[in-house]
Design a protein around this nucleic acid. Sequence first.
RNA 1: GCCGAUGUGGCUCAGGGGUAGAGCAUUCGAUUCGUAAUCGAACGGUCGCGAGUUCGAAUCUCGCCAUCGGCUCCA
Length: 605
Amino acid sequence: MHCESIVMVAQPQSDILRQSDPEKLHRLRHSVSHILAMAVQKLYPETKVTIGPAIENGFYYDFDRTEGFTPDDLKRIEKEMRRIVQQKLPMERVEVPREEMRERLVALGEPYKLEIFEGFDPMVPVTLYKTGEWWDLCAGPHVESTSEINPQAFKLRSVSGSYWRGDQSKQQLQRIYGTAWETPAQLEEFLRREEEAKKRDHRKLGKELGLFTFSDLVGPGLPLWTPKGTILRYTLEEFLRKEQVKRGYQQVVTPHIARVDLFKTSGHWFKYKEDMFPLMNTSEDGTGEEGFVMKPMNCPFHIQIYKSELHSYRELPIRYAEFGTVYRYEQSGELGGLTRVRGFTQDDSHLFVTPDQLEDEFKKVVDLIQFVFKALQLDEGFSARLSFRDPTSDKYMGSDEIWEKAESAIRKAALDMGIPHFEALGEAAFYGPKLDFLFRDALGREWQLGTVQVDYNLPERFELEYVSEDGSRKRPVMIHRAPFGSLERLIGILIEHYAGDFPLWLAPVQVRILPIKDSVFGYCEALKDRLIGLGMRVEVDTSAESLKKKIRNAELGKIPVMVIVGEKEAAENTANLRVRGKENQEELTVDALIAYLSERIEKRI
RNA sequence: GCCGAUGUGGCUCAGGGGUAGAGCAUUCGAUUCGUAAUCGAACGGUCGCGAGUUCGAAUCUCGCCAUCGGCUCCA
């Protein structure tokens, strides 16, 4: 059954939610957002309208109103919307001369609309859409009449704050979110599917499966890993560590805190201070900026290791790898589950290469990341984002020339390797461009996992060198990379991706032996010891429950393999295999069971 | 950080100004069972924390903390 739900996610084209023409749905949703604004202004006339676009699965509208909207208000508004829709009003497009439009907006007293209007290209004709007595400055398109909107196929969902023009320094607005579909059946299906998605939310499953926990006393955004969750972490670490060693990485270990001077040299203290935990001031009088900080990044530490001796070009590329835990002071409203935390462990590595080696080494890193994602069965769900700088912004370190070099190297690697990608301006780190691998969680939110970043800036700031062929000192280029991104986020994504049904090699408990009666306990314990001796994670369910109950518990615990043992098995030195999610069973010799388990663990299936 | 909602035993939730309730889990007892819930009993909560209103607060008010949905920001 869990497998089926994965298939469902993978092939959304065939389902009822995809039957509607996307263009048409978009128009419908945009129109419903207009009806929302109309209803709000009818019920709360002091409210000013701003913008209200169609979005994935629905729409929102941002209003300027002193009081917030309560859930009861939403019900009232929704009712009013239905009433409006049922009047079957035409939604008319009217082209209006610019001067007239300005006058109309001034007369209407809609400052935000006026601001939008003033920003328009004077050459483009301006339009408004009229629904009954109400009208809104809008380019459209909309449905022709509210009769095209099914009053039972939309729903207001939540209220939240937002900012005018998305700018924190500007007016705070009230945003109402809604969902809208062509038919009530689609709406129901959407809501049902959302319920399903919530069931695989890693926060819920993590608690149910006992993988991690949080404590108010420890603090927000600081996960505590239980024994079961720790197995996931260690297994993933071990997997990557081995692969990296094969690929020429060397492991290093660095502390969690450092003098603030380290981050002043790196530039983090100036560009990243807001995101760092505050300074632990150890100066005599407690003033000034002396002392230690928690590390928000590992790179400056690895750089110090590089700098501890002189390197020849013959040694390069040098690849230092560390599962390094970093601490970032995220805004309180940003925290959530394992995907956004304040302390997390990066599978970090810093590569020091000659300029000539950059492209080749970059490709090797991308290859490693692809290898990792394939092993985790995540290779179908990702997209790669080439995160470049916003050329109009000045928040970046380093010269234009350096940036252009780095960006073109990344673009070339992505093209040469044929990875599906898109370019995003303004998404770069302040010290260099990135190639980021993105995933969606069960609730459709996009998260960044793996990342590769080219960095010409830190080598400059720390004055890194290597001795070149001709004996001169040259500056290496750095690559920062983390295939997992962070262990925390990766595990959060994996919990949702597998819906808690971890493949055998990752499962915290791989095998649970279920004795049918007390008399076979001895046989079960012996079998357990043998499997544990082979490195497997095994338990015996010695509770005084019925077999049915033991099976149920193992299924709910999402344990991949059940081994059922009764008198028959104990007498014949066999085991009865029942695989999670499957009702059929198989009677195996113990040796065959071991072969079955070993093969699957080895192949990571 | 901002807007809104929520916060009752380990978990899921009911109750709502007058001495805390259920199911699951846990413990104990009985049951020894062949593929998704055996029966019974017991234990367990100063109702997130702190003030205030009140004869009396889990319930009303305020502040704080945390969580959730968003905004802004990122692995």
